[in-house]
Every structure is written in C-alpha cells, then in structure tokens.
Design a protein around this nucleic acid. Sequence first.
DNA 1: AGGCCTTGGTTCAAGTTTGAAACAAACCTA
DNA 2: TAGGTTTGTTTCAAACTTGAACCAAGGCCT
Lengths: 171, 171
Amino acid sequence: MTTRWLTPEEQRAWRAYMAASLLLEDAIDRQLQQDAGMPHLYYSILSVLSESPERRLRMTDLAERLKITRSRLTYAVTRLEKDGMLRREACRYDKRGSVAALTDEGFAVLERAAPGHVETVRSSLFDRLSEEQVGQLEEISAAIAQGLQEDGARAAADEVPWRRRSSTACS
Amino acid sequence: MTTRWLTPEEQRAWRAYMAASLLLEDAIDRQLQQDAGMPHLYYSILSVLSESPERRLRMTDLAERLKITRSRLTYAVTRLEKDGMLRREACRYDKRGSVAALTDEGFAVLERAAPGHVETVRSSLFDRLSEEQVGQLEEISAAIAQGLQEDGARAAADEVPWRRRSSTACS
DNA sequence: AGGCCTTGGTTCAAGTTTGAAACAAACCTA
DNA sequence: TAGGTTTGTTTCAAACTTGAACCAAGGCCT
C-alpha cells in the first residue's frame, strides 16, 4: 500500500505541536532546574509521591503513573534518595518490591518549589489558551494517550507469540 | 501575591498533556530507532535539511528551526556526519559559520524511513483525532509556541541589563 | 519438592543532553 | 585601527536516558 502522507493541515499541526512541546518542556525544565535544582521529571516524582497514600508508592506503580521506564525511574530515585528527597523501603508483602517514600525534606522542597512551577505552567500554557481550548487540549491529549497505552498493552500481549504452543499443530 | 493554583480542569488537561507527549515521543523515537537507527531529533534534522534550498542550512538556522540549542545540534550533526548522512561545509560569506549539507546517502535514508515514520505519526496521533481536533491542536500549539518564543526573545533582550549605560545618571 | 515462566528491580555500557566556558571571526565605535 | 562587544560554533564534564542483561523472588504446574 502506498504511503498516506500528511495533508497540509496535518503537517502544520504536527510541526506546531513539535515546536510547542519542545519549547514547553524546555521552559519548565529550566525553571525547575533554577528554582529547585532538579529537572521536571524529578519534580514530578516528588509530586506524585506527595499525593499518594502515606506519600509512598512502589517503583512499578510510580513508573506506570509517570509513563517512564523502570530503569529511568531507578536512576532518578537513586539521585533523589542521595539528595534526601525520598527513601527507599522494602515492601512488606513482596520481598522483590521496593517502595519510594517521600521524606519530610522532600515534601518541604516540593512545597517551596510548587508556586514557581505552577506560575510557569500558567504563564507558558494556560494564560495563552481560552477556557474552551483547555478542554480541547484535554480531550486531544486523552485520546492520544489512551491510544498509545492500548498499543503498548497490545504489544506486550503479542510479545514472543512464537512461544505459544498451538493445540492443533499448524507450524 | 498568593499562588493561583491550577483549576481541576487545568490539572486534568495538564496531566493528560504530559502523559500524551511523553508516550508520543517515546513511540516515535522507538519506531525511528528501530527502522532508521536514529532518534527522532536526528531524523528531523535530515528532514529539515531535505526541504531547504540546496539541501543545506547553517547550524544556527537549523537549531532555530528545530528549537534546540546549538550545542545539542553540534553533537547530533557530528554523529550524523560520522554516519555519512550529511557533510559540514564552510560558509562562504562568514568564516565563522558552518553549514550542514545533506548527502545523497542521507537523502536516501530519509526517503526509506519516511513512510514508516509517517505511518507512526498517523496511527499514534492523527488517526485518533477528528478533523476538527487537528485544527484545534494546531491553534493551541501555535499559541504556546508563539508565547514561549516571545519570552525567549524578551529574555535575550533583557540580558545583562546592568551593562546598559543610561543617559541620565540614575544609579 | 523441582522445574519453568513471569514479575519487580537494578546494573551496566553506550548514547544523548545540558550549560558553562573557550575560541575565533565579525562588528562596532571612539 | 585598536579595543571591546557580539555572534557562530565547538568543547568539555557532569548529568541523564536507553535497552539489554541480570538477579531475585513469586507463581504455576506436575
């Protein structure tokens, strides 16, 4: 089948999106690096933890919420632990598991950084959008995210299908 | 002034956006790494070059179009040059300048990779959106990008203001 | 219990990004 | 035209990300 190239409208949207997402992540990373000494992802880790029951979460759950790989998370958590922002604890139910627990210091750092962060998100993003556009952005983003997560799940399910033994022998 | 926190609608939009942008970049990076052996940014460099007059562009212009730092570009171009995808040439007008020129091999690689890339962009993004949403996405992205670029320009202009000599001596 | 696959996490090397510093050419301006 | 600033680009070290490989521990069978 011949490629269905992007229409001019799609091209414009795609380019605008790429520029916007790059610039936005940059702006946010820069602000947080300045004011909190950590990149956006690291701040997000603290943020997610702070909203979790008992301010702690298992590594895999944390990775899932943040949509990042476990390996990336391991590295980040190691750094944050070194900085005293969180502690690693053993999981009581599952001896394999480890849970990240926000420390009081981590929580304090988060509280101190939050206003500046919110202000940046506001001035970079929401101040430029109408209320209607905020709703549109949510719907669009949700649609994309949902699709990609289904893809991921499907891919995982289909993984190494050649290992499945079919009951009727058809190669 | 007390912080204006995000409204629930804004929070939802922000979280959905973050998830979507992470997942999307991941999907695209993975596909291109698989099929073309390079991350998205590197592909974009080739792509921008291929659409430029004579398939060449000065480093700064390239960085500007891609919204990345010059230093990041230098690294990427070095790799791409090593791989034979492009060549660095001296700029005739400005002896400081260097221009990146797409090689025939680079163009060929690009042509081979393009269909798969477009297919991924389509299935990850545009297939999930209505025509209307594509338009909305463009407008939203353009608004964000425009705002952030103005900010960047303003910040650059205001840089080291203490060096400016005011005509009337006021401190 | 003894295998075997899966799951939760970490480790390691290679690749990439960051930001500040270094350089050199170009551009003032006195 | 010499000195000082700006502009274009690279360099360097430190930080971060990636993906594959690894190591337990948990869950099934049989």
